[in-house]
């Protein structure tokens, strides 16, 4: 696989503060990579360094085989960038805004006119092309931004918080559009967000980014096993009819006999978390019933990015509290 973006030991320091801390990351051609993290994690700074708009303090950035710090113009020819909270010239129409971008990319008028109208139709803004951008809604602006990124025929597109401030329906449409267009043109997509479930839907791989560090990367499933639990499957069971300590022990004993069960935690009165190496839901149900307890609820827990995220921040906050006390 060809590596389109390659970051090696990238660091950006503002005085004492390290915005990006020794980051190494590579993204392959055709991937949809999600850069996830809370606000101020250094996502935007990393993106700016990829475009040569900010100089790294140390380390190197290679995009499409070019050094972004030394050859920013060549890199910017190949990379489309949609900034966070993108702005357009309000007094111009959407069409004129795109035309300006096309001209800046050295496209002749003949080429630019055709491409601009084609792209506007593609992102569904065809009927609004001559409207001034000041009359556009937030979602329309974002779609115009996407068209603006595609005008230069990029190899890579970098979208910084593309879904910010759009309603759920708009988000869905926009993300579908991104996926469709990137497949159509064989693009590599890097997308930053702090909305986990949105990114989860479309990314082939995600990286979790916290206070300048990439703490984990991979697809959502491998991330959950990296970050959350030692066991790939977790089963939550609620049981009734247990009164005595003996019953609890008996239940645990029975459950331990089920092959694949690795850990049993009694979280609250009658609430059990059972970690297993494989899917053993039915066997566990049988074991609980056989032990004489009443099974009221049984569910297989799967972790989404939200849980991963929350779990991670639970850890960091407890960590911080620990440090400060």
């Amino acid at each position: 696989m060809e590596q389109v973006i390659e970051l090696v030991n990238l660091t950006k320091q503002y005085g004492e503060f390290k915005a990006v801390d020794n980051l190494s990351l590579s993204i392959q051609k055709g991937e949809v990579f999600g850069l996830l993290g809370p606000n101020g994690a250094g996502k935007s700074t990393t993106i700016l360094m990829m475009l040569g708009l900010t100089e790294p303090s140390s380390g190197s950035v290679k995009v499409c085989g070019l050094d972004a710090t030394k050859q920013p113009v060549e890199v910017k020819r190949k990379v489309g960038y949609l900034p966070e909270d993108v702005g357009f010239y309000d007094e111009l129409s959407g069409f004129e805004n795109l035309l300006f971008t096309a001209r800046l990319n050295g496209q002749s008028d003949k080429l630019a006119y055709g491409k601009t109208s084609e792209l506007l139709n593609k992102v569904g803004l065809g009927p609004h092309a001559e409207k001034k951008v000041s009359k556009y809604s937030r979602g329309m602006r974002q779609r115009l931004g996407l068209a603006d990124v595609l005008v230069k025929d990029p190899e890579v597109i970098i979208l910084d918080e593309p879904t910010l401030g759009i309603d759920p329906k708009g988000v869905k449409e926009l993300l579908e559009l991104i996926v469709r267009l990137s497949k159509e043109k064989g693009l590599t997509v890097l997308l930053s967000s702090h909305h986990l479930h949105q990114v989860q839907q479309i990314c082939t791989r995600v990286g979790l980014f916290v206070s300048g560090k990439l703490i984990a990367s991979g697809d959502v499933e491998s991330l959950s096993s990296q970050l959350i639990s030692k066991h790939p499957f977790l089963i939550e069971a609620r049981v009734g009819g247990i009164q005595e300590e003996v019953d609890n022990d008996k239940l645990k004993e029975k459950l331990n006999l089920v092959p694949g069960v690795k850990e049993i935690n009694l979280l609250a009165e009658g609430l059990l978390h059972i970690g297993c190496s494989m899917d053993r839901t039915s066997e566990i149900a049988q074991a609980i019933v056989a032990s004489g307890a009443q099974l009221t609820h049984l569910s297989k827990k799967t972790y989404g990015l939200d849980d991963i995220y929350q779990r991670y921040f639970e850890n960091t906050t407890s960590h911080e509290v620990h440090q400060s006390s």
Partner: peptide
């Protein structure tokens, strides 16, 4: 303030 600076400067210009 209009947010056009980052967009224009990410085009292939010096």
């Amino acid at each position: 303030t209009r947010g056009t600076m980052a967009r224009v400067l990410s085009q292939p210009i010096y």
